[in-house]
């Protein structure tokens, strides 16, 4: 069974169509959540800071324009993970409200568990992406 990264809100659904993606962008805009696009070739779950495709689109109210930016990012970075974030700036939240993956590399070798054995059966676990053993930019090319 090949590895499937399940980060993001919709990773257990079949791949999203363009209309699917647009409908979720619309939902965010209805809630006044500005959207942003991010990409990475380091899918470690503790990699919080994916590279930003420009700034968050605070003033962009047009779903088609947001979708255009998503497509531009995908075109510029094929073979990368690309995600869309919707941000809720309200007091008491000030955090992401929705985040989902819209592009994946054709294959991802996944993660290995590194076990550092200590005394008394103690273990220290580390998670390592097989892909990130290669330099950035060369990770998911075939």
């Amino acid at each position: 069974m090949s590895f499937h990264l399940t980060q993001g809100t919709f990773s257990y659904l079949p791949p999203l169509s363009d209309d699917d993606v647009k409908s979720q962008i619309e939902y965010a805009l209805q809630h006044n959540w500005p959207l942003s696009v991010e990409f990475t070739d380091d899918p470690h779950p503790r990699n919080t800071y994916w590279t930003m495709w420009g700034l968050p689109m605070f003033d962009q109210r047009d779903a088609a324009a947001v979708f255009y930016e998503v497509e531009q990012c995908k075109k510029a970075y094929p073979g990368y993970y690309v995600r869309i974030n919707a941000y809720d700036r309200r007091l008491g939240r000030q955090t992401i409200a929705l985040s989902f993956i819209v592009q994946r590399p054709s294959t991802d070798p996944g993660f290995r568990v590194v076990r550092q054995e200590g005394p008394n059966r103690q273990l220290r676990y580390t998670l390592e992406s097989y892909a990130t053993t290669r330099p950035a930019g060369q990770r998911f090319s075939d």
């Binding site: 590895f3 990264l5 399940t6 779950p45 993660f111 290995r112």
Partner: peptide
Amino acid sequence: AMAATGEI
């Protein structure tokens, strides 16, 4: 399980 999914 974290390795199998890439999630926390």
